[in-house]
Each structure stands twice: as C-alpha cells, then as structure tokens.
Amino acid sequence: MNEQHSEWQPRILAFLCNWCSYAGADLAGVSRLQYPPNVRIVRVPCSGRVNPGYILKALQEGVDGVLVSGCHPGDCHYLTGNYHARRKFRLLKELLDFVGVEDGRVQFAWVSAAEGAKFAQVMAEVTEKVRALGPNRRLAKKIGNPKSQ
C-alpha cells in the first residue's frame, strides 16, 4: 500500500438510477472530472427501485455510507418513481435519525444526465462527509463480518 491509502478509507455504496444519475456519472467521466475513488456504484432502473432494505442491508454489511441518486423531481423516466422514492427515503431518514444513526451515513441526491459536475461534486462531498463520520460501527454486523472489524 502506498502512503495515501494507509489512512482509513470510507467505503461507500451508491445506487444510481439508469436514466439520470448513472448518465451524470458517465458524463463526469467523459469530462474527466476527478473525485475520490471511494464510491462503488450499483445501477438500478429508477430510484423508485431502491428498497429501503437495501440501504439497511448495506449498512449492516459494513458499508460506511450509502448514497441514493435519481432524476430530479418531475424528470423521472418512469414519471413518478422518484416521487415515491422521496417519500420512502424521507421515512427512512426520519427513522434512522431518530434511532441515532449519524446524519450523513445515508444520503440522497438528484443528479441529472447533464450534471456531470454536480455528480463529481456530490461524490466528493459524500465521501468527505462519511470520512468525517468515521467508520460505520453502529449498524454494521460485528459477528462473522470480516469487513467491519
């Protein structure tokens, strides 16, 4: 390991909708906008596809942060998927906040296909916020999980 990786690096999972945010991520690439390499991307058809259970499961599996990103309100490829998602995520956020999971473990963003710059910025900000929180110790499973030691 070289020097810059000897410090702790957060591992972040991002669910990106295929039509806007995933395309925005591609655009960030095409534009060669640099951002930290801590985020792993799962492509889903729509932010409405994201079951809150995925987010919880990812946290239990020891991921340090989760981002869900979809089309801006009104721009959903599936018309209303992101609206439904927004209500669900709001509920999840309320719940996680209340039980005391750190604000920033789970984050949400709207990134359009044209917003490569915003995507890169979101990546940097999400990474920084999670880095500032430190490793996910609250919801991560300790038994039998080599990743969360």
Binding site: N2, Q4, H5, A25, A28, G29, P36, P37, N38, R43
Partner: peptide, 19 residues
C-alpha cells in the same frame, strides 16, 4: 463500468482506481 466511472475520474489515484 471501469472507465467512465473509474479510470477517467481517478486519474491521479491508480491504486484507488484499481481497487
């Protein structure tokens, strides 16, 4: 996607990109 969402956006961090 290891180009648009990896090599192109982590050009200064080959190790991080490889991981």
């Amino acid at each position: 996607n290891i180009r648009d969402q990896c090599s192109w956006v982590h050009q200064r961090d080959p190790q991080g990109a490889t991981e």
